[in-house]
């Protein structure tokens, strides 16, 4: 690891003045002068430290965001929406009473991530912006498409943990488990630009698949800071559930994770469903087939099973990851029943 300068931003204005580059842009520019002079923002630092140790990123200066009080709060907005500061840790998310009560799938997703040690340091903002864990991407020996190379090594290589949907020239899965739940809740992210301009983007649109951009996973602009995640006020009758399955239960990446948000009417019928698959595609994968299969239906074993099959329709598994299809089918069915309180 190379040496770097370190500053801690006391407030958002100071962080914005730092003139930061995005990690993706810096890596895309490497080994050019833009990369050598890069100022990189640090949240929990989990992924940043990994990238530096892997020899993929060598920032000239690191600006720590953890000391900015306004980014560390969870607050209910007038009208019932929830604003989660980008520096809120996964452990805080998992333990927050309001999130547990209203956005249960998010608390479950955050609480099941990584290890207790990492959850106490990793932030929601950093979690959403972390780079993919694909071992070819993480290897300095593999000049892969996401790093500007010509090929995706996963297509012909070890792809057991890779995507089963949407591998347009790159087969990564999005590494954030929290994002799976957030997309199911129709969350948005708040971004503040270098001149202080705020914009709000639906998370689903903020995250970019390889068909849009092969070298970055999101639409963060240079100098921009992700300041908060916004969750819409829960509608009456909303229930949610998140399930993750790793090969190991402790400290392992999921091979599949599923978030289900059901809006149930008084008659027990499902008015609207959100079904999102994580570790399935380069971005959280919204299973529209499953969502429409559930709309207007009473939730029971049979409806859940049909929706699970619909969720996986059109999957394009690679040579070594077709096993994920039945794993996802089981998880989707169980998560639907879990959300409906029938697990």
């Amino acid at each position: 690891m190379k040496g770097f300068a370190w500053t801690s931003a006391p407030d958002l204005a100071a962080a914005l003045r730092a003139g930061s580059a995005t990690v993706a842009a810096t890596m895309a520019a490497a080994p050019g002068p833009a990369a050598a002079n890069a100022v990189i923002l640090k949240a929990g630092g989990i992924d940043l430290l990994d990238l530096m140790k892997e020899g993929l990123l060598a920032p000239q200066r690191i600006v720590n965001l953890r000391g900015i009080p306004e980014l560390g709060r969870i607050a209910e907005e007038p009208g019932g929406a929830l604003r989660i500061g980008a520096m809120v840790t996964l452990a805080q998310l998992a333990g927050d009473p309001l999130i547990r009560a209203r956005y249960g799938a998010l608390a479950q997703a955050a609480g099941g991530s990584a290890s207790p040690q990492i959850r106490h340091v990793a932030t929601l903002g950093g979690n959403l912006l972390q780079r993919p864990r694909c071992w070819y991407f993480r290897s300095i020996h593999h000049d892969c498409a996401r790093k500007g190379g010509r090929q995706c090594f996963a297509f012909m290589g070890e792809n057991q943990y890779h995507a089963i949907f949407g591998q347009y020239g790159c087969a990564i899965v999005h590494p954030s488990t929290a994002a799976t739940a957030l997309v199911a809740f129709d969350a948005s992210v708040e971004l503040v630009g270098a001149r202080g301009a705020r914009r709000t983007v639906a998370l689903e649109n903020f995250l970019l698949g390889p068909e849009v951009d092969l070298q970055r996973e999101n639409a963060l602009a240079p100098g921009e800071i992700l300041t908060a995640v916004l969750l819409p006020a829960p509608k009456p009758g909303v229930r949610s559930f998140h399930l993750r399955q790793g090969e190991l239960d402790s400290f392992d990446w999921p091979i599949a994770d599923v978030a289900v948000v059901l809006e149930l009417g008084r008659d027990g019928a499902c008015r609207r469903a959100g079904v999102v698959l994580g570790a399935a595609a380069p971005v959280p994968y919204r299973a529209r087939g499953a969502e429409s299969a559930l709309a207007g239906q009473r939730i029971a074993e049979g409806t859940a099973r049909s929706a699970a099959i619909a969720a996986l329709a059109g999957a394009t598994p690679l040579a070594k990851n077709a096993y994920k299809v039945p794993v996802f089918e089981a998880l989707v069915r169980r998560a639907i029943l879990g959300a409906a309180g029938q697990a």
Binding site: S139, L248, S250
Partner: peptide, 25 residues
């Protein structure tokens, strides 16, 4: 141990990807 057959590099030479049972196992 996972070896990339085309490039000859070990892909999981770290404790993130080389899996061993941990506390919950």
């Amino acid at each position: 141990r996972l070896l990339d057959r085309r490039t000859g590099h070990v892909l999981n030479a770290d404790l993130e990807h080389y899996k061993i049972g941990r506390s919950r196992e």
